[in-house]
Simulated assay, not measured.
Amino acid sequence: MRIGADLMHLAELDRLLTRTWFRAYAYAESELATASGFGPERRQEFLTGRFAGKEAVAKAIGTGFGRGVTPRQIAIERAGSGESRVVLTDAAAARAAALGVVAVQLSITHKADLVLAVALAIPSSA
């Protein structure tokens, strides 16, 4: 198993989130659609949490945002149970497959002005 974690301040992305290019680079359409239904404070919390989650997943698959892996290739959706569901595409999916990763578990938590995300990449041999 491989683990990745990321910690962010809620306001850390505020300036970037106002830029259309950053939203397109960092978030899947499904994530942006969900965020658009929230008020400003919840949207900030949601998008910062998703970005921290993407960072944690990228670390768990051993790339960070490099080697062709971009944040948008790591989508964090909500499963019917309410838990986070990680969907990898393109270079992120290829990297995970090369490592034998069959699933990625993710937990995101918010407290005061902090967001913490922890990802666990689970190999087929686990």
Rank of each mutant, 00 (worst) to 15 (best):
98 A>P: 09
124 S>R: 15
95 R>D: 08
17 L>Q: 07
9 H>Y: 10
54 K>D: 04
73 Q>D: 10
23 R>D: 08
36 S>V: 03
94 A>W: 11
102 V>K: 04
10 L>Y: 00
25 Y>N: 03
112 A>R: 08
37 G>K: 08
94 A>V: 00
43 R>S: 10
41 E>S: 12
16 L>H: 11
42 R>W: 07
6 D>R: 08
43 R>Y: 06
52 A>K: 11
11 A>V: 00
102 V>N: 00
122 I>P: 04
72 R>S: 08
58 A>M: 09
72 R>G: 04
94 A>S: 15
28 A>P: 05
95 R>F: 02
85 R>M: 06
99 L>Y: 12
27 Y>N: 09
69 V>R: 15
16 L>I: 01
17 L>P: 09
61 I>W: 13
49 G>Q: 10
35 A>V: 07
65 F>C: 13
39 G>R: 14
61 I>M: 13
21 W>N: 09
64 G>K: 03
25 Y>F: 15
89 T>M: 02
15 R>K: 13
114 L>S: 05
57 V>A: 13
19 R>A: 10
27 Y>V: 06
75 A>R: 14
77 E>K: 09
120 L>M: 00
20 T>L: 14
57 V>F: 06
106 L>D: 06
116 L>G: 10
117 A>N: 04
76 I>K: 04
60 A>F: 08
104 V>P: 08
64 G>W: 03
88 L>E: 15
36 S>P: 09
92 A>S: 05
101 V>R: 08
118 V>C: 05
67 R>Y: 05
32 L>N: 04
117 A>S: 02
69 V>E: 11
11 A>K: 11
55 E>Q: 03
85 R>S: 08
68 G>A: 05
52 A>C: 01
24 A>W: 14
60 A>N: 07
77 E>Q: 14
98 A>Y: 04
82 G>F: 08
75 A>V: 12
82 G>H: 06
7 L>G: 03
112 A>D: 00
50 R>P: 07
55 E>A: 01
13 L>E: 12
31 E>G: 00
18 T>F: 00
27 Y>E: 06
8 M>L: 15
72 R>P: 03
17 L>N: 03
62 G>S: 13
10 L>A: 05
69 V>G: 13
18 T>C: 09
96 A>M: 10
39 G>K: 13
92 A>M: 14
47 L>A: 06
31 E>M: 01
68 G>T: 02
15 R>F: 07
59 K>Y: 01
22 F>E: 06
18 T>N: 02
75 A>P: 03
81 S>G: 07
95 R>Y: 00
12 E>Q: 09
26 A>Q: 11
125 S>D: 07
78 R>Q: 06
76 I>G: 09
79 A>C: 03
67 R>N: 01
59 K>H: 06
97 A>I: 04
90 D>R: 15
71 P>V: 06
86 V>L: 15
46 F>M: 03
118 V>N: 04
